[in-house]
Nucleic acid binder design. Sequence first.
DNA 1: CGGGCAAGTGTTATAGTATAACATAATAGG
DNA 2: CCTATTATGTTATACTATAACACTTGCCCG
Lengths: 155, 155
Amino acid sequence: MEKISALAPSDRAAHVAAAEARCARAGETLTPLRRRVLTLLLDQEGPAKAYDLLDGLKGEHGAAKPPTIYRALEFLVRLGLAHRIESKNAFVACDIGACARSTIFLLCEQCGAASEADAGHALEDVAQAAKRAGFELRRTMLEASGLCATCRRAA
Amino acid sequence: MEKISALAPSDRAAHVAAAEARCARAGETLTPLRRRVLTLLLDQEGPAKAYDLLDGLKGEHGAAKPPTIYRALEFLVRLGLAHRIESKNAFVACDIGACARSTIFLLCEQCGAASEADAGHALEDVAQAAKRAGFELRRTMLEASGLCATCRRAA
DNA sequence: CGGGCAAGTGTTATAGTATAACATAATAGG
DNA sequence: CCTATTATGTTATACTATAACACTTGCCCG
């Protein structure tokens, strides 16, 4: 498992550029506010809480209120640029490469890291289970918690 | 997909008896309060919110406060008698039969039903993904939202 | 017996997460 | 220009969850 860490500035720039392109393709716009929230997410070492991001905005932005951050996050999630970690009420920037495939979040209970791993065929299995049940799938959430490789070695 | 619905009283009784046995095996006790919360869960048509269950307690119990219900729920989840639906901040009684295997929750966005379906090999795939990442798995959460068979037919 | 530990519950207070509803600004197309 | 749409600002409040401490009960052990 790779530790999720803040990206180097250049990687961040590339990431933001890719996000920009993705928005354009979708006919939506990555406004300054949304871009700012995305970079805040990219700067995080792990999943970020909404209210922490809100604090991050405050330095430059005066007094941002909760709806501001929740709307930006909702946008980023809708465009597939970020994910919501349901079991932690937190958000992570999407690793755009990984996102192309079926992914699962591995959440370390020790260090808080969240890594987006390839879920192999899990998503297909879920799709089949849904099909058997006559269920129309719209969104699938796969999350697992435990100990990451680093913390396991330390223990 | 079978609709999750309130169980007939006799089924409920059997369910509670099974829960009792399970607690005994684990060396824990299903106290009156915990039993009451479990039956409240079983009476639900779908996932129940903590504060709704709290209201349910109030009729007979005077003024139950939040910690009361959260502690009971924490116990039921710990014993595997209930599940927490992370993406909805809600709880469901565990279908004890289904729980023996790998399950996924199919959450209908229309009617709110939650059904516990067999996840096929998804859990094994997740275990493999974790293994590849050197990650020690402790808990896996599989949730999917969409439209259940009934609501799909209605649409 | 009786002291004290452990488990369960009661109670108060507060922390943390999220959204409704309405106001304002900016921009684009007719 | 005007007006529809999208984005953001702002106020207030709803919803979810836990910390911390008090009290009771039952049980083990000295």
